[in-house]
């Protein structure tokens, strides 16, 4: 499904490869995502764009083999020699966190309310990286700093932090496990413009040695981060290719609508600024 322009690193083995992934409701067999294929290479990033309900989040979850039990997956997600969709539970689990990192959409509820942020970091780094408390704390502080948070959020409870801060905590936590592929589901929704820029810059920097899959409504974020673009519509891939090409000459009606919607949204702001719509 990815066209050949995306395979600039031809010859290198892909980090993650999804082959004809589909998601169905177990009880009724109704398809929610169908026949989506994508390939992620080291040092490259892929943006997934689509309306709400187009199956973006489900696709992200299926890449990690984390679908709810009411849904079934078909196809293959190959990562590090295993099929994440059909591998043994333990085999898939060992690849999550340190191999495949997922940034969840709702950061507000992504932390255990009964434990401090520090407990989340220490536990994850101990279990996944074998780090002792002191080393884990240093690493946590370093990654929190990169997202623009002070080290004292470590002692905060989740309910004491704002949605934006929790989102940055989650980014720091996910990145501290140093995954080779980062699947980011709307990673900047709860951020103000300043932090949004900071996170985009951080993710862009990480792309060098990793692969990034970024889901967003925000075409500006996708444009800044994604080398390639995949447009999802009603669970199917309707268009894909290099970001610049897709945005310059959208082929599918859905892509055109998304672009128009974005222009319509920014029009009032431009008018407010005195510019012409």
């Amino acid at each position: 499904m990815m066209d050949d322009t995306s395979q600039k690193t031809a010859g290198a083995a892909p980090l993650l490869e999804a082959r004809r992934v589909g998601v169905r409701v177990r009880a009724t067999g109704e398809p929610l995502v169908a026949d989506v294929s994508l390939t992620l290479y080291r040092g490259r990033s892929l943006g997934i764009v689509g309306d709400s309900g187009s199956g973006k989040t489900l696709l992200c979850r299926s890449l990690l083999g984390l679908l709810p039990s009411s849904l079934t997956a078909e196809g293959q997600v190959l990562f590090d020699g295993a099929d994440m969709l059909h591998a043994e539970a333990a085999e898939a689990r060992h690849r999550r966190g340190t191999g495949l990192g997922l940034l969840l959409q709702q950061a507000m509820t992504a932390f255990d309310p009964l434990r401090t942020i520090e407990a989340h970091f220490l536990e994850s780094l101990r279990e996944k990286c074998g780090l002792a408390a002191a080393g884990a704390r240093r690493k946590a502080e370093a990654y929190l700093n990169r997202t623009g948070l002070a080290a004292d959020v470590l002692h905060a409870w989740p309910h004491q932090l704002s949605g934006g801060m929790l989102q940055r905590c989650m980014i720091a936590l996910t990145l501290s496990l140093e995954p080779s592929v980062i699947v980011a589901d709307e990673p900047t929704t709860a951020q103000d413009a300043c932090h949004q820029f900071r996170i985009v810059r951080l993710l862009a920097g990480l792309r060098q040695e990793r692969a990034l899959l970024i889901v967003s409504h925000d075409l500006a974020v996708v444009q800044a981060l994604a080398d390639d673009l995949l447009i999802l519509h009603e669970g199917r891939c309707v268009e894909s290719g290099p970001t610049a090409a897709v945005l310059a000459a959208p082929q599918h009606a859905c892509t055109r609508r998304l672009l128009e919607a974005r222009q319509a949204l920014s029009r009032p702001f431009l008018q407010l600024r005195g510019g012409r719509a």
């Binding site: 979850r61 969840l104 992504a110 255990d112 279990e127 989650m170 496990l177």
Partner: peptide, 21 residues
Amino acid sequence: RENFVLHDRARGLSPRTVMKH
């Protein structure tokens, strides 16, 4: 079904740890 449990599992924590939470 809470989101933080999904987050725990997305970090690849062991089933025992997740169950503890």
